[in-house]
Computed example of a mutant assay.
Amino acid sequence: MEDLIVAFLRSGTPIVYVALAGVIAQRAGVWNLGLEGLMIVGACATIVTIRLTGSQPLALAVAVLLCCALSALLWFVVEILKANQIIAGLGITGLGLGGTALALTAIFGSEAAVNAPFGLPRIGPAFGAFGGLSVLVAVMPVLVFGTWLVLCRTRFGLRLSACGEHPFAARAIGVSPTLMRLWALLLGAPFCALAGAELAAGSLQMFSVNMTSGRGFMGFAAVIFGAGHPVGAALAAFFFAFAGALGIRAQLLYGDRVPSALLLALPYLATVAGLWLSAHLGRRSTASGPNELGRL
């Protein structure tokens, strides 16, 4: 049972982080389909920097800076060049997937997997079976609560929601939706970097091409399934992760009786089912309404 919970937390934490980035962007009115690309850039930057420098803090700093640069590029294309959000987001994803493969070839001479001598710090043996989890798993609930606090209980969060729901009203009170969207994307970038770092250096200590395997899109689906709320998105992300952990467990127990491809597809089937259920129930974002504009 403990092994299942550990696998559940390990697989769910990266999706939670990337879902938080999606929630922040969605609050500002940006549907960020570039989460997959940002996540894999964070994973690649973390492992490559650890491999080349041996520094964990520097690796995380490089991952955050690269994700911020890509987020700023997305903002520029969407807000300044007025490109379609969906196409621009998919372009960032393609840039991340292709760019990391190109980076491996340029640095190491091939697209083969890159191993790091060590990963992120662990919680420690004092926590028993959970001691092998990284510190990013331990701080994840704190960051979820902090994101909820900022988005739902601060003036900045209310202004961000107003820019997403009622941009003309936000302009009327002197708030620039364009600038707030830049802040939203830049604030979400570190979460994408942490998601990639946790995926690549949390337990595996390696990076391979396309290793995110759609987790960024799962995070985007969690934003929709969670109605644009930080806690709801985190719970939705863990729902998808639970399906994945269950699939791995079932593969170990019943792999000889059930096709392994079907078991490995469980998290993606759960994602599709979550999106269908969200649309069927007519759930929508809990962003602030016009009656709260006076609090801005």
Rank of each mutant, 00 (worst) to 15 (best):
E2C: 09
D3C: 11
L4E: 12
L9W: 06
L9G: 02
L9V: 11
G12V: 07
T13W: 07
Y17V: 08
Y17M: 09
G22R: 02
Q26V: 10
A28H: 11
G29Y: 05
V30M: 06
W31V: 09
W31Q: 10
L33C: 07
G34L: 05
L35T: 03
G37E: 02
G42M: 08
C44Y: 00
A45C: 12
A45Y: 03
T49L: 03
L52N: 08
T53A: 09
Q56D: 13
A59S: 12
A59R: 00
L60E: 01
A61S: 08
V62C: 02
A63I: 01
V64Q: 00
L65W: 00
L66F: 08
A69L: 10
I80Q: 12
I80H: 11
K82W: 09
A83W: 04
A83K: 06
N84G: 11
I87F: 12
G89I: 00
I92D: 01
I92S: 00
T93F: 05
G94T: 11
L97P: 03
G99N: 04
A103Q: 07
G119R: 01
G124S: 05
G128K: 10
G128N: 10
G131M: 07
L136K: 04
L136S: 04
L136N: 02
A138Q: 12
A138C: 13
L143I: 13
V144H: 03
F145I: 15
G146C: 15
W148H: 14
L149P: 08
V150Y: 15
R153V: 11
R155V: 14
L158R: 03
R159Y: 10
L160V: 10
S161T: 11
A162E: 05
A162L: 13
C163A: 13
F168C: 08
L182W: 04
W183C: 10
A184Y: 02
F191V: 06
E198G: 03
A201L: 06
G202S: 07
M206V: 13
S213W: 09
F220K: 02
F220D: 01
I224E: 00
I224R: 00
F225H: 00
F225M: 08
G226L: 06
G226E: 04
A227E: 05
A227I: 05
G228F: 05
G228I: 07
H229Q: 12
H229K: 12
P230I: 07
P230Q: 10
G232W: 01
A237R: 02
F238G: 02
F239T: 09
F239M: 11
F239E: 04
F240G: 01
F240P: 01
A241Y: 06
A243R: 04
G247I: 05
I248C: 13
R257E: 14
S260V: 14
L263V: 06
L264S: 11
A265Q: 11
Y268F: 10
T271S: 10
V272W: 14
G274H: 10
W276N: 13
L277R: 14
S278N: 12
G282I: 14
R283F: 14
R284F: 15
R284T: 15
A287N: 09
G289Y: 15
N291W: 15
